[in-house]
């Protein structure tokens, strides 16, 4: 880096600056560094509590080491299988649908020539992304409540069917939660794909047109192959987070309803309930530890793969 402009000032001065141990730039980075230590690094160091039986009377460090006991309890319980299954299956559904729907809607948006219409569609489908999941839970309740809900009062009744108490029937919820997730995130996903679709070189379409390719052929032969790398990358990155779930979606939208746990309990809702509602630090920290470590390994693996197939999209 001979052209580095920092070298262009007199050697003496840059030498003087280098010798000072603590510079103005260090000072400017300091608030951010302190925050990351408090918010991220201390909790990372705190992962060891999964191997302890925490007793706040003794203090965290003086509490007894119990080896893998917390993990044994966790994985022997019937909850472990349920939360793992739910977390993985929901994420699989989300990953596939986010990719397919995101690309499809991105392609449709790209077809629209009318600027005003395009802006309207973008604005509308992004709207659910903006609101908190609590509001989504209120709206869901408006539709699904057993006595006052719209579905029971105006749809099922009109069809001559009996009212359904949705908040105690777990079988319906995989459909509801997947629908709500897609409803909330489709705007975001489609815009990410849309922005990579519009970056495709226009001259490719022009020459394809001269060769007589119709619009469908242009999409399947030009657009899709060119956005494949970004689709693969986003999908792989999502796979790296397959043990994480959207706490709000699974906790607020089903209104923390006990009868629904069979299809709504995920690792994140389990950790929260075990920690703050049952005060079971052992089980919750074991589940959290599992999530952190497995999550880290998956991210590393996934990033390794991405680096092979499309290095410019890798995390590092």
């Amino acid at each position: 880096m001979n052209t580095d402009p920092s070298k262009s000032i007199s050697e003496k001065e840059s030498y003087k600056r280098k010798k000072r141990f603590f510079t103005a730039l260090d000072l400017m980075a300091l608030p951010g560094i302190i925050y990351l230590i408090i918010n991220n690094y201390i909790p990372m160091g705190g992962l060891f509590i999964a191997f302890k039986k925490i007793d706040f009377a003794k203090g965290i460090f003086a509490s007894d080491w119990v080896g893998f006991q917390n993990f044994k309890f966790l994985f022997r319980s019937s909850d472990a299988a349920v939360i793992l299954r739910n977390t993985l299956l929901y994420n699989l559904a989300f990953i596939v649908l986010n990719c397919v729907c995101g690309i499809a809607v991105g392609l449709f948006l790209n077809e629209i020539r009318n600027k005003l219409a395009k802006k309207f569609y973008q604005t509308a489908i992004l709207l659910p992304q903006l609101i908190s999941i609590i509001i989504v839970a209120y709206i869901t309740y408006g539709f699904l409540a057993s006595e006052t809900g719209f579905v029971n009062n105006h749809i099922l009744k009109a069809m001559g069917k009996a009212a359904v108490n949705f908040y105690s029937k777990p079988a319906y919820w995989p459909f509801f939660l997947i629908f709500i997730h897609i409803w909330k995130t489709i705007g975001y996903n489609s815009i990410i794909y849309f922005s990579s679709i519009i970056s495709v070189d226009k001259s490719l379409y022009e020459s394809a047109e001269i060769d007589g390719a119709n619009r469908f052929q242009q999409i399947t032969k030009i657009t899709l192959p060119l956005i494949k790398p970004i689709a693969i990358t986003l999908t792989l990155m999502a796979c790296g987070r397959i043990f994480y779930s959207d706490f709000g979606l699974f906790y607020q939208v089903p209104m923390n309803s006990g009868p629904l746990y069979a299809t709504t309990n995920t690792i994140d809702t389990y950790v929260y309930r075990a920690l703050l509602q049952l005060n079971d630090i052992g089980m919750s920290s074991a589940a959290g530890f599992f999530q952190s470590i497995v999550g880290f390994c998956l991210i590393m693996i996934v990033n390794g793969i991405v680096r092979k197939i499309s290095p410019e999209n890798a995390l590092y």
Binding site: L36, N40, P43, G45, V271, I281, S285, G288, S292, L315
Partner: peptide
Amino acid sequence: YNKRAILSFFVFFTMLFNGGLVPTYIS
């Protein structure tokens, strides 16, 4: 900036690994 590489890693690592809810809540 002379500590650019190490500080970048320090920031970036938090995207890969986290302590999760329990240690965060307790700390």
